[in-house]
Design a protein around this nucleic acid. Sequence first.
DNA 1: TAAAATACTTGCATTTTGCAACTATTTTGT
DNA 2: ACAAAATAGTTGCAAAATGCAAGTATTTTA
Lengths: 148, 148
Amino acid sequence: MNYTNDANQLREFIRLLERKFGILEKSEVSCCGVTFSQCHAIVEIGRAKNISLNELAETLGLDNSTMSRTVNNLVTNGMAEREIDPADRRYVTIKLTESGHKIFEGIETAMNLYFKRVYNNIPDDKKEQVIESLYILLEAIGRNECCK
Amino acid sequence: MNYTNDANQLREFIRLLERKFGILEKSEVSCCGVTFSQCHAIVEIGRAKNISLNELAETLGLDNSTMSRTVNNLVTNGMAEREIDPADRRYVTIKLTESGHKIFEGIETAMNLYFKRVYNNIPDDKKEQVIESLYILLEAIGRNECCK
DNA sequence: TAAAATACTTGCATTTTGCAACTATTTTGT
DNA sequence: ACAAAATAGTTGCAAAATGCAAGTATTTTA
């Protein structure tokens, strides 16, 4: 087995995956009336129920300043609200408003439907293998990061 | 087997993958002295040897105008050159300069090394399965797109 | 209790992006 | 053959996304 070539194959497939999901994301955003970065933020806030700016920025891999502005847009557009954490007044707790939550649910529904479809397109006898493989891949990536 | 939950698992893993590669891309860009979009363009031009603006934009999923500007930046910085196709003067043939090619090779080397490492982190008896699974996944995604 | 650390925000500059309108060239339909 | 349609690319514009540096406010630490 030629390791280098298989590693290239890995790169190539991941490249294609990235491209597919780039396209998916674009269509996703356009259908929900929110911008790209707003969409990401809404999903993460919605998942966490409430989250600090710091954590949110960390999760999305963005600078705090960028994150702060995106949250600001959400707040301005009535999709999220900020609240100072009484336990530690440096922290801001961010959560979705009702309106924001509806958008969140819309995105979730669409995404879940999409992935359900993709999943069902995988042959039955390969479904488990694909899921397992993604997990293995994530592990392999993680192991790479920790010791570079 | 609960299909919906496994589909969610699929979504979750892909979400994590996307995040990992977002980070990878950021570090990649910062080390090569080119911007994000320039990096993408360089890689695609380098792979194709020469390519039309149209094709390049199509490949990267960008508007022609955006692509034109990015190419413009590359040309201005001496990394690429434009040439009108004599066979059909509407087309512009884009190729890397020597300087651009060096950057391309730098990116390729780094990326190949990265993926080789990741690949080698996959247990031997799972390597083949992971590659196959990615292919299956891509197929499943493709089958989804054609009929929505 | 002063200094350091932390969470967040704002000023600024840059990058990335797409739409619409434009030019230049080639293809098509009559 | 030639006017109309299609195609490839560019540019004006406006908006979104981003990070760094410098700021405020609060809490922790020494």
